[in-house]
Design a protein around this nucleic acid. Structure first.
Lengths: 141, 141
DNA sequence: CAGTAAACTTGAATCAATCAAGTTTAGGGC
DNA sequence: GCCCTAAACTTGATTGATTCAAGTTTACTG
């Protein structure tokens, strides 16, 4: 399915900024809004900051993009692939990578007590150090 | 162990703002920095914004407090109880509650592949709607 | 091909949190 | 008990990601 068809399937208008954002996120997964803005402007120089944020929200609401917001770092976006994977984040530099869900079935996704909350998503974030920052820390220690 | 002893045990100085913050967080778990500031000022009117942030960071680093940062909402703090529990967050109003880790042992905490990251913490966040917001949504739907 | 609501632009504002620089104070040493 | 010094605090300004507000353009419906 082309990006145009994807947008149409969700009942969204097909515009140049939207196509450019989809392409940019596809080319650079886990990009920040700022990086996406830069990438989009390489093809469409006139696009505004607000425009990119609007597009990101619209596409996220439609389920075409997934938004990841690691504590203490700007939000990142990836194309929704439908699979249930999680993320590992570097405490030092904010580097982010995908982590497949451990051992087949999704554990931890049915909490014991939810205090009356209706849960629709369980999100797992692994915190640690990326290889680069670990090396740097060893060097100074 | 008293709060004073807790601070001493971590090699931290015992000051009025620190004791007040510990007490405030104990009385109102999952409070935001702003709420903690307000609570602390009821007893110590002169305490500054920066002072509370400094204390929160110092106590968090020392392991006396735990900081929770739900995406799109200000950070919240709780007293470190040592147990491994997670959190459920309301998408609508940001309400937050504790969730015991499902079924005894900690699942999902050993990711399959970590791309060379050294992981030291696995964090699980459940997203959904709190009872209040669910009722409100049903009423308008 | 015209009408309209959605999508965009510009420009200013918000909010949590942090930085910078100077002052106070807790607690070890005399 | 009283200095001394680093840690802890205060005031005041600033950052940075994101959002609000108001007006203009543009993709799709009829």
């Amino acid at each position: 399915m082309t990006d145009t068809e994807l947008l149409r399937a969700e009942g969204l208008r097909v515009t140049a900024p939207r196509l450019a954002v989809l392409e940019a996120v596809g080319a650079a997964p886990h990009a920040t809004a700022d990086q996406i803005l830069t990438a989009v402007r390489r093809e469409l120089p006139g696009v505004s900051v607000q425009g990119v944020y609007d597009v990101l929200h619209a596409l996220t609401d439609a389920g075409l993009l997934r938004c990841i917001e690691p504590a203490g770092h700007p939000a990142r976006y990836e194309r929704r692939t439908g699979d249930n994977h999680h993320h590992v984040v570097c405490r030092e530099c904010g580097a982010l990578d995908d982590v497949d869900c451990a051992v087949g079935h999704a554990p931890c996704l049915t909490p014991s007590t939810t205090h009356g909350f209706s849960v629709d998503l369980a999100e797992v974030t692994y915190w640690g150090l990326c290889p680069g920052c670990r090396t740097a820390r060893d060097a100074t220690a």
